[in-house]
Design a protein around this nucleic acid. Structure first.
Lengths: 156, 156
DNA sequence: AATGCCTCCCGAACGGCTTTCGGATTCGCT
DNA sequence: AGCGAATCCGAAAGCCGTTCGGGAGGCATT
């Protein structure tokens, strides 16, 4: 155990370098990866496997252009429970809606913020109806006009 | 040209299947991919290359656990320009800050919404200072308490 | 109807890559 | 000193990525 804090599972420099590279290029080959972090291929392979089963590497995804798959519209939807005494199971009530990409529980006036992706204003209207019905919440929607940049790799 | 609308570049069913699989598993091998979409390896390879240079496939990224890389805190920051007459170059003024993962231009009271990732409340405070200084904006911050789900693959 | 062009598909082949294994090294602990 | 755990490396086997040539189908022109 090299963890000083005893709470947050810290990571070593080499592991961080691996995560940095894979966050930038998720399809990077093990051979390239090994070269970039200065290790043998088999050592890198072993570390990646460990990072995966440790949960530090949660998966790999292609970034696809929303416009080209017919989902050009993005919005943020803030949720406020109608019945403050209702049990807080909103994520479970909403996860079946595939238009909802992300769900965050937040501090502030509202309880949750959803990030959604739809085909059109009509699609957004229909989604709002489904959200209100499924979760018994009132909603406040902020429509995204453009996305200067998105999902940049974190500075590891 | 199979595009009926003449504006939005629509995609074919096979290409959509490829994008769906790669959005779910960005490191999927071409062999597996070919099997899943019912094509030969070389045909899939050709289509993926075309999707990449067409911009439908914008890249590949590993999803990493923010907690384990020392960035356990997420927040949304809404921006309002201080000088309404100032030129709108906020994204360029902010892109050098690596803590900012995403930047959205939005409709509504505020002009932009940023999604950021920091190590601690002190890190957030310092980032807010940098944002206000770099972009001459006032900020409103919503701290994320937990993330029930995030960045789910879209329903293609 | 035939020709040529374009697009898309496939199979083969080569080189590179992934994955696993055994063994060497280091480090910490008894 | 001796032992165990962790980590590294190199080698080997098989699988995979990448490219190439060629064939099938659609479409327009002749």
């Amino acid at each position: 155990m090299s963890d000083k804090s005893g709470n947050a599972p810290e990571l070593e420099a080499t592991d961080r370098a691996i995560l940095r590279e894979l966050a930038r290029d998720g399809r990077c080959s093990f051979t390239d990866l090994a070269e970039r972090v200065g290790l043998s291929v088999s050592a890198v392979h072993q570390r990646v496997r460990r990072l995966e089963q440790r949960g530090a590497l949660q998966g790999y995804a292609a970034r696809v252009d929303g416009d080209q798959i017919g989902l050009p519209m993005t919005a943020f939807i803030s949720l406020t429970p109608i019945d403050p005494a209702a049990p807080d199971d909103y994520p479970q009530r909403l996860e079946h809606l595939p238009q909802i990409e992300s769900c965050y529980s937040v501090a502030g006036d509202e309880s949750y913020i959803l990030q959604v992706r739809v085909a059109s204003p009509l699609g957004l209207e229909e989604l709002l109806r489904q959200i209100r019905e499924a979760a018994k919440v009132s909603t406040r929607t902020t429509v995204v006009l453009s996305t200067p940049f998105e999902n940049r790799p974190p500075a590891i």
